[in-house]
Design a protein around this nucleic acid. Structure first.
Lengths: 272, 272
DNA sequence: TATTATGATGCAAATATATGCAAACTTTTT
DNA sequence: AAAAAGTTTGCATATATTTGCATCATAATA
C-alpha cells in the first residue's frame, strides 16, 4: 500500500510537471544565477526575477545567500562577479572547478570561530582564501604571495605576510626569521597546504625547508586542518611533515562516509 | 495556453531588450572608468559622461568613490591613473608605454655594479623590475608584492621579501620587523618609489609609515636613485621623505639637459 | 577683472533594500 | 495518517541609495 501511494505520488507529480511550469528549486535557481553571472560578468535582479519567474524578493534572497558564500558580490540593483585578478582564479578553472567549490565550501566552516588563521602555500589554500565570505573579519597570516594578493578583495581581512627568501617555484617565502616569529604567535587555526596525504604515512611534502616551517606552524595553532583534493589522497612525497595525531580535521570533496576514506578514520580526527 | 504565454513573454522581453539599453550599474561604470584610465592614463569627466550616457554628476561621484578606494587620483576636470598601484604589466600599458620604456632603459645602468638592491613600492619600480635583463644575477630586497612576483621571470635574481602587515591599497608590507632587519643590511643600491618630486621640497609621499621605512632604506644603501615619470615632476605630497642631499641619481624620461630639469641641477646629484 | 569651466551641495523622483507577516509547501515527529 | 515544526515564497511597508537637476561656490584663463 505504501509503495503504491509513493508511486502514485511520483506519478501525479510527473503529470503535474508536464502541464504546469516546473517550479524551480532554490539551489537550481542559485546555480543558474552563478552560471549567468559567469557568462555576463554582471546580473540584474529585475531581469533575473522575470527570467526565472520568481519574485524579486526570492532572487534578492538568493543573491544574499550567494554573497555570504563568497560566490559573488552584491551591488545596488544586482551583482557582479567577485574577482578580476591576474591569476588563475577559481572561475577560470573549468571543470575541475566543481571539486574545488565543494572543498572550499566545506572549508568555510573552519573559519567560523577563528580570529587568527595561519595559511601557507598551495593552490588549494589560494582557492579557499579566494572564496571566503566578503564580510569575514579575521586576520590571515601567510607566507603565500598569491594568497595575500587575492585577499585584496576582502576588505575586512587583515593580512600579515611572513618575510624571507622568496621561492619562485612555489611563490612562498621561507626564512629563519619566520621560525622565530612563530614562537611568539598563537593562532586559532592552521590550514596546512601539502603534497601528499596517506593513512599510514601522514602528511608529506617535496621540500625539506618547508616541512620544518609546517612543523613550526602546527605548534603555533590550536587547531590544524588539511584540505585534500581527490588526486592527492593516498599519495606520499619525500619529506614527512607530521602524522595524524597532529591533525584535527581532514576535508575532502568526498562524503565523509565514502569508503575511500575508511582507512583515514581514527580517534581524534574529524573528517568533513 | 501556458506555453503560449511563456513564449509570448520571452518574445516581448526580447523585443524590449533591443530597444531599451540595459541600464548600467554603478560598479559596471566604475570598472569601465578604470579600464579607460589604464588605457589613456588620463580621463575627462565630460567625455566620460557622454560615453557612458549618464549625467556629469554621476561620473563625478563615481570618480570620487574610486579616489576614496585609492584607485585613481582626481584632478581638475578629470582623473589620472594612480601610478602607485601596480596592476598591469608593461605589455598592457598601451601608449603611455613609451615613457616607461625610456625610463626603464636608463635605469638598467644602475644595476651594472650592484649585487644587493633595495626596491620598494610603486609602479615605476614594478616596471623597471619587469624590464630587467633576464640573465641579471643580483639579489633584490623588496616589500612590494607585485614586484616580487614579476621577478618570477628572472631565474637568476634572488628575491627577498620583507614581511609585515600587508597594505592592500599599495600592495606592500610594512612593519617594525622590517625596520629592525634593515639595521643589519648593507645594500649597493636603493631604487626608491615615491609620489612627489620637487626641486625645493625634495621627495614626498602620501603615507606616513612608508616615509619612515624609506628613510631607513636610505641609510641602508650606498647609493640612492629615484625614477620620475614626467607627471610627477614638480609635485609635492603630504610627507617628506628626504631632501636632495640623500639622493645620488635622478632619472627621468627627459634629456638630462631639458630646461624643465634646470632647477634640479645641483652638486652631488647626477641627472640621467 | 571678467569670463568660463568645473566643483560642491541640497533636493526630489525613481529605484532598490530590509523586515515582518501570512500562506504554501516540506520535513519530521507522533 | 495526522500533527507539528521548519522552510520558502510573495507581498506590504518603511527605510536607504542612486540619480539628475538647480544653485551657488571655486578655480583656471584671458
Amino acid at each position: 500500500m505504501q509503495t503504491f501511494c509513493f508511486v502514485a505520488y511520483i506519478f501525479l507529480h510527473y503529470i503535474a510537471n508536464i502541464f504546469s511550469e516546473p517550479t524551480m528549486m532554490k539551489e537550481e535557481r542559485q546555480r543558474m544565477i552563478i552560471a549567468k553571472l559567469n557568462r555576463d560578468q554582471r546580473i540584474n535582479l529585475v531581469e533575473l526575477s522575470q527570467l526565472l519567474e520568481v519574485s524579486y524578493d526570492s532572487i534578492r534572497r538568493d543573491v544574499i545567500e550567494l554573497e555570504d558564500k563568497g560566490l559573488l558580490k552584491k551591488v545596488h540593483g544586482g551583482a557582479v562577479a567577485n574577482s578580476y585578478l591576474p591569476f588563475k582564479t577559481t572561475q577560470g578553472l573549468g571543470i575541475a572547478n566543481q571539486e574545488i567549490i565543494q572543498l572550499t565550501r566545506k572549508a568555510q566552516k573552519l573559519f567560523e570561530n577563528a580570529r587568527i588563521v595561519l595559511m601557507d602555500g598551495g593552490t588549494t589554500n589560494f582557492h579557499i582564501a579566494e572564496q571566503l565570505p566578503k564580510n569575514l573579519d579575521i586576520t590571515v597570516i601567510t607566507n603565500n604571495l598569491p594568497l595575500a594578493m587575492v585577499l585584496n578583495e576582502h576588505p575586512k581581512i587583515e593580512t600579515i605576510l611572513l618575510g624571507g627568501t622568496y621561492y619562485k617555484r612555489y611563490q612562498i617565502t621561507l626564512s629563519n626569521e619566520i621560525m622565530r616569529q612563530l614562537d611568539h604567535l598563537q593562532a586559532d587555526l592552521y590550514l596546512m597546504g601539502f603534497n601528499g596525504v596517506h593513512p599510514e604515512h601522514g602528511i608529506t611534502i617535496r621540500h625539506y625547508e618547508e616541512s620544518l616551517l609546517k612543523q613550526k606552524m602546527i605548534k603555533a595553532a590550536r587547531r590544524v586542518a588539511v584540505c585534500a583534493v581527490e588526486e592527492k589522497i593516498n599519495t606520499v612525497e619525500t619529506y614527512k611533515v607530521c602524522g595524524w595525531n597532529d591533525i584535527d580535521v581532514l576535508i575532502t570533496s568526498l562524503k565523509p562516509t565514502d569508503p575511500e576514506l575508511a582507512l583515514f578514520r581514527r580517534e581524534g580526527l574529524e573528517i568533513w
